[in-house]
Design a protein around this nucleic acid. Sequence first.
DNA 1: CAGTAAACGGAAAGCCTTTCCGCTTCTGCT
DNA 2: AGCAGAAGCGGAAAGGCTTTCCGTTTACTG
Lengths: 210, 210
Amino acid sequence: MSERAPGSAESPASSANPGDRRPRADARRNLDALIQAARTVFARSGVDAPAKEITDLAGVGVGTLYRHFPRRAALVAAVLQHEIDACADAGPALSAAHEPVLALARWMDRYTAFVGTKRGLAGALHSGDPAFEGLHAYFLQRLEPTLAELLDAAAATGEVRDDIGARDVLHAIALLSRPVPGEDDPAYSRRLVSVFVDGLRTPSRPAPPA
Amino acid sequence: MSERAPGSAESPASSANPGDRRPRADARRNLDALIQAARTVFARSGVDAPAKEITDLAGVGVGTLYRHFPRRAALVAAVLQHEIDACADAGPALSAAHEPVLALARWMDRYTAFVGTKRGLAGALHSGDPAFEGLHAYFLQRLEPTLAELLDAAAATGEVRDDIGARDVLHAIALLSRPVPGEDDPAYSRRLVSVFVDGLRTPSRPAPPA
DNA sequence: CAGTAAACGGAAAGCCTTTCCGCTTCTGCT
DNA sequence: AGCAGAAGCGGAAAGGCTTTCCGTTTACTG
């Protein structure tokens, strides 16, 4: 559920044009090896690790890397895409297993953990590097509907205000989850997020008379 | 009020040791020129502008830059220090001119604008680069008391909860003010901030029974 | 199985930051 | 004033990274 088949509806620019032929087998293999290696290296040494480290681990030359990913940032984007998929896939599962408000809360935890762990993600998304525009689009494409559904269900119970969109919440949490110098405890991020989430509750309506 | 005199209480490691002599006049001149040039260049081309651009504008060689600022990041830090000062100085002025809750709101606007405009600041602060640890300390040193005062005054009115510290608020707003790819309208940041600030209000206490 | 285009690898170019060191310019002292 | 001597200067070179380029190799097609 987490691998996008080439040409699947979500992938922006890969629908099978009548003209393009199937890629060579070694190319595909190398591409997979690169993404896998990048995952490992990014996890071990952070997203700023030199490309060499990745190509070595993948057992290919740098040329190969740059043919598949015209900019280094594109590789980062490709890796993050996987992570986004995994997080999006968790949504339906949760909403099936719990009642709306709880499902929402759980998913937000999941998302907070995700976006906080993959330090690279939020950084990339907000870097302003044009190479990440596509990733941001993908990010919204996959996560916005997921959260929107959870959010709508929760709003229907009347406990959550309905004038803040899923997109806003995604952004806010992603931002609040970025590491802060003095505080490396992930609980810190959660605390900030929780204040934000409090702000999401229906504004205390004056208690209905009697 | 915005220039720190050397040896002033706030500057961490610059108290006049009995051994150290006054710096040479040209050195001081160059240092000022560098900071001024950096301000200009950062504003024009962003904090990632090559150092060469700065040294050229300042009319000095790169060697001079690196003697004054052992790492490039140190120069960024020096520039941001100025901006932090300006923002801190706005606090007392506002609290003198307005009642507590309004003063708080105004200062948050000011701070939001500041941290949103100087894209470099939040980026630097959260970059994890050890060169910015000092800056972060300075940031807290100057802004935390400022906000704490405003926050306390507001909390005293009972409209604002008192279990979230000034530091948390500073961090949260700085994070929420970072630019988000699709939305370059500063109003967007303000909207996110405002939800957070809503979360800051006293939790709607269950109406005391009759 | 041969021909061809796709894909490969790694050397080299191009940019940056940072270091180094011989030369210049202040400054304090006579 | 004038003269050491230290403090500071400039820019060349080192080092490291991303990105380009191109001769060579490899997988597919008929």
